[in-house]
């Protein structure tokens, strides 16, 4: 019983971080159909902000909030400086630009901080356990699940109940039509990048508090996870990203638990094998998007 609960909590914890990664990526993809390869670097930026500020006497909550703002700001700046000028060009130009931005940010970290990983001070209580009705629960799991849940609820309310959210959903549906109703494309796109950055910041904090350090390439794994999650979950809806994230998280934890010790090194290979299997049977992802069904024929 204890084991089962532990498994569920671990899966929820990892899955929710993955879901946030995926949501941040799909936020921009949904509107521009651009896989933003510089997305991982937003997580890196959040991590370095944490690293730089930890010497000050600011409380962790403030540090994290600043890190989120810096990630969002970076995201908006990359849109303004790099993506907007090439937006009217081909899709490929955007894609290559996102690689360029990614490389630029990574190398900036390399030059200005260090090529080596730098430790961040994760509060000690993150690694303690609390006893809940005879079950040991790690505080970090509780923090991760709590923060992700609040973020998901916040995003849901934003997308359903606010002017911005409704506009963003419409833009993902038919951007040109939205413009014909009088909506400014620039405003919608910049908002999408900002939200993407906020999600990267929050997820980045949770991710880096798991790893305990930040390096120039810290964003690469999250980017890959996010990409796989949205492909498996379905690329045409936010719910697809969430489902994909939790699917990958649960799969990772399950394999960690079930694979024999000497097979653990191949965990990721097994994950990819399962992902391929899913795609063989559901090429459009677990959650069928509207466009996926329309494109056939």
């Amino acid at each position: 019983m204890d084991g089962v609960l532990q498994f569920i909590l671990n899966s929820l914890s990892l899955g929710s971080v993955y879901a946030l990664f995926a949501l941040g990526l799909i936020m921009v993809f949904g509107i521009l159909k651009l896989v933003n390869f510089a997305y991982g670097e937003l997580i890196m930026v959040a991590g370095y902000t944490w690293f730089v500020l930890q010497g000050t006497l600011l409380p962790l909550v403030v540090v994290v909030l600043v890190a989120i703002v810096v990630a969002a700001f970076t995201s908006v700046v990359t849109e303004r400086v790099a993506f907007r000028p090439v937006r009217s060009n081909s899709m490929n130009a955007m894609l290559i630009t996102s690689f360029a931005v990614s490389t630029l940010l990574q190398n900036s970290a390399l030059v200005f901080v260090s090529p080596r990983a730098r430790a961040v001070d994760v509060p000690v209580f993150f690694h303690t356990n609390i006893n809940l009705g005879g079950v040991q629960i790690s505080v970090s799991n509780v923090v991760v699940i709590l923060v992700s849940t609040l973020t998901l609820i916040g995003l849901l309310v934003l997308m359903q109940k606010t002017r911005l959210g409704i506009t963003l959903r419409a833009a993902a549906d038919d951007f040109r039509m939205l413009q014909l109703l009088g909506v400014r494309a620039d405003q919608v796109i910049v908002s999408a990048f900002a939200i993407s950055g906020v999600l990267a910041g929050i997820a980045g904090f949770l991710w880096i508090s798991r790893i305990g350090s930040v390096s120039p390439t810290v964003g690469m794994a999250p980017l890959l996870i996010a990409l796989i999650a949205i492909v498996v979950g379905g690329m045409n809806s936010l719910s697809g990203a969430i489902v994909g994230g939790f699917f990958l998280g649960t799969l990772t934890i399950a394999l960690q638990l079930l694979l024999p010790q000497d097979m653990l090194a191949f965990r990721d290979a097994v994950i990819f094998a399962v992902v391929i299997l899913v795609l063989v049977f559901r090429p459009q992802g677990i959650v069928k998007g509207r466009f996926a069904t329309e494109r056939i024929g």
Partner: peptide, 29 residues
């Protein structure tokens, strides 16, 4: 204008579609 083929936001409700017209004109929610 409208087009020869209907262009609604298919993932959204009727209400949201109509509302988007007013939002597009810059009105508050």
């Amino acid at each position: 204008r409208t087009f020869q083929t209907v262009r609604l936001f298919g993932t959204m409700s009727v209400f949201e579609n109509v509302q988007l017209g007013a939002l597009g004109a810059g009105l508050r929610r």
